[in-house]
Design a protein around this nucleic acid. Structure first.
Lengths: 153, 153
DNA sequence: ATAATTCGTTAGCATAGCTAAGTAAATACG
DNA sequence: CGTATTTACTTAGCTATGCTAACGAATTAT
């Protein structure tokens, strides 16, 4: 990760500097949060997919892959893992026999909520060190980020 | 990742909401940036470690593992990968034969800079869609994040 | 009816994370 | 001084995630 590079300029506000630091911060943030994830017995990819299913409702494997920005074979394995843990299940699509609908089981919903709770609380505990203003800044920034991620190609 | 949950409340500014969205955004951000990484023939773990070496100077394998928040066996393999690609090298520690100093090669430095450039420019290109204010918000937020990550346990 | 496309899976590869167990060197202690 | 402990890294082996290529089955288009 690291940074440096340009100590000239006031703070670092060019798109490149922000990009660099954002990248670094994202990697380190996730490395830490991942420990919470794996402490629950499921990896981040499964929890993320499960989360999509729980909040977005059942969908085809392909849609889920697209939502998670991974290739279909990768999602096939993630779903297989979810099934093995009884967290999700494949159900045949009535209208199109090529498709497979994926949905979260009740157990999956519970685990996701618990996992989310652990993960989020862990992160939130760290964020509570911040002042109201800092948190507010972070909140706005995340919204900005979400928009960028949505419009992304 | 998803969100929802609390549509009550103004935007989402509680520590928990920010934490949740931040987590989601970080995952999706990195999934995209990773494509740039792998387009260079090296995975993100190697590039990240290489970056630490380039900007932080040579250090022992253990220190590198600590800096990257991974276990020593994991770092052993990352370093082995770097050596295979002639991007880094192990040199014996003069004072303590148990230790191994790791350093970036000239090729490693060049690749890291090029990779960083690609990665950052890719991200920066997306951020350039933003208004000056939004970018500024993001910049401040990243600084806040960096502080949180530093003081993290 | 046949051809082309779409959807998911299988097979096979690479990266990256972990724990447990082993080796070698340095340090502590009696 | 010699043994015992601790420290640093490696090896072995497992799991999880990512990919592309190639395939089978179902749907859609010609």
């Amino acid at each position: 990760m690291r940074h440096e590079i340009a100590k000239h300029q006031p703070p670092g506000r060019s798109a490149e500097q922000v990009a660099d630091r954002l990248h670094s911060a994202a990697i380190h943030l996730l490395r830490r949060v991942r420990k919470q994830d794996t402490a629950m017995g499921e990896g981040p990819a499964r929890l993320s997919a499960l989360s999509v299913l729980v909040f977005g409702g059942p969908m085809s494997l392909g849609q889920l892959a697209a939502a998670e920005q991974v290739r279909p074979p990768t999602m096939t394995r993630i779903v297989t893992g979810l099934e093995r843990g009884k967290l999700g299940e494949r159900v045949p699509d009535p209208g199109d026999a090529r498709r497979v609908q994926i949905r979260a089981t009740a157990k999956g919903v519970r685990l996701m909520q618990r996992g989310r709770k652990a993960r989020i609380e862990y992160l939130a505990r760290q964020l509570e060190q911040l002042t109201k203003d800092e948190l507010s800044t972070l909140g706005e920034a995340v919204e900005v980020l979400q928009r960028v991620l949505q419009s992304w190609t």
